[in-house]
């Protein structure tokens, strides 16, 4: 297994910029007061046309940490998540203001290659969405289309499936259709597919909401494993899930803009997960975490 701790992180600007050496999170259990941000939002606004969906977000995602984004429906969690790897580029009329820094570089910078951004910052969606191909081809797809130099595709497939805790279950049926897998297995396959292109960050938008409780526990266990190598940002509606997996939690809500009447999302509070659930400083956080949701 490659240990990315202390490894050089390549620049997202092609053929440019000195990579910066970033140290991994210290021994398990220790969480610094301030995240050592590998990915960072600076005063981020996201618009769909003239509608401002999210405004003024300042947030740091700590290296080798799991950060949960929580908040009521429509407060812009998915919108913000998609802005972290330029997935919004694919949405008509979507526009990001402010800066999203990955390892110090603005991912919206003019020289930045959006495809490379999405390779380095992968995304796993709510509904497992494997391709209508074999299990093997689902994993090999990313490395092939991105033109990754691969010594042995078989090894790479095995490594990705192993890291996603799926290898044991599928190693004898790699040629079967990905659709033959259960929902939980399909989601782990999608995680393996994301891992295969060797990202640094994995974004997950409600990755367990379509899964049964047992499959959910497996994904949560997997997230704890993956944190050793990757930085993870997860959107979840399940506060117990946030408490179980996340080192830090960011709570968002939406407020009605007086002028336009639009409901715009804002970051209310960000801190260590234990602090957010035990001693939230903002009343809106407290009202939400003991409100009718959860």
């Amino acid at each position: 297994m490659i240990d990315r701790a202390g490894e050089k992180i390549e620049s997202i600007v092609p053929h440019e910029g000195p990579g910066v050496r970033i140290n991994a999170r210290p021994a398990d259990g220790f969480l610094p007061d301030e995240p050592r941000g590998i990915l960072q939002c600076e005063n981020v606004d996201v618009y769909y046309g003239s509608f401002r969906a999210v405004t003024g977000v300042d947030l740091k995602f700590g290296l080798h940490e799991i950060t949960a984004l929580i908040g009521p429906s429509g407060c812009g969690k998915s919108t913000l998540l998609r802005s972290l790897n330029r997935m919004n580029d694919l949405v008509d009329g979507a526009r990001v203001e402010g800066r999203v820094l990955f390892d110090g570089e603005d991912i919206y910078g003019s020289k930045v290659d959006a495809i490379e951004v999405r390779r380095r910052i992968g995304m796993v969606f709510q509904k497992p969405n494997p391709f209508p191909k074999s299990i093997y081809d689902n994993i090999a797809y990313g490395p092939r289309v991105t033109g990754m130099r691969v010594d042995s595709m078989d090894d790479l497939v095995e490594e990705a499936l192993t890291k996603a805790a799926l290898w044991g279950e599928v190693k004898d049926k790699l040629k079967q259709s990905a659709y033959s897998l259960s929902g939980g297995q399909q989601q782990r396959l999608c995680i393996a597919r994301t891992i295969a292109v060797k990202p640094d960050v994995i974004l997950m938008d409600e990755p367990c909401s379509a899964l049964d409780p047992i499959a959910t526990v497996r994904i949560e266990d997997l997230m704890h494993e993956l944190r050793r190598e990757y930085t993870i940002v997860i959107v979840t509606h399940n506060m117990q899930q946030a408490a179980r997996v996340a080192d830090r939690t960011a709570f968002f809500t939406a407020f009605a803009d007086e002028g336009t009447g639009d409901r715009t999302g804002v970051l209310v509070e960000f801190g260590k997960t234990t602090q957010i659930f035990e001693h939230p400083t903002d009343q809106r956080t407290e009202d939400y975490i003991s409100g009718r949701f959860g």
């Binding site: 506060m239 179980r244 234990t274 659930f277 035990e278 975490i289 003991s290 409100g291 009718r292």
Partner: peptide, 20 residues
């Protein structure tokens, strides 16, 4: 003993939802 705070908060949320 795990995550008692969040479980207490969520229980309050469930009670509220049941009342309303």
């Amino acid at each position: 003993p795990q995550n008692r705070a969040v479980r207490a908060r969520v229980a309050i949320g469930r009670l509220r939802a049941a009342f309303s």
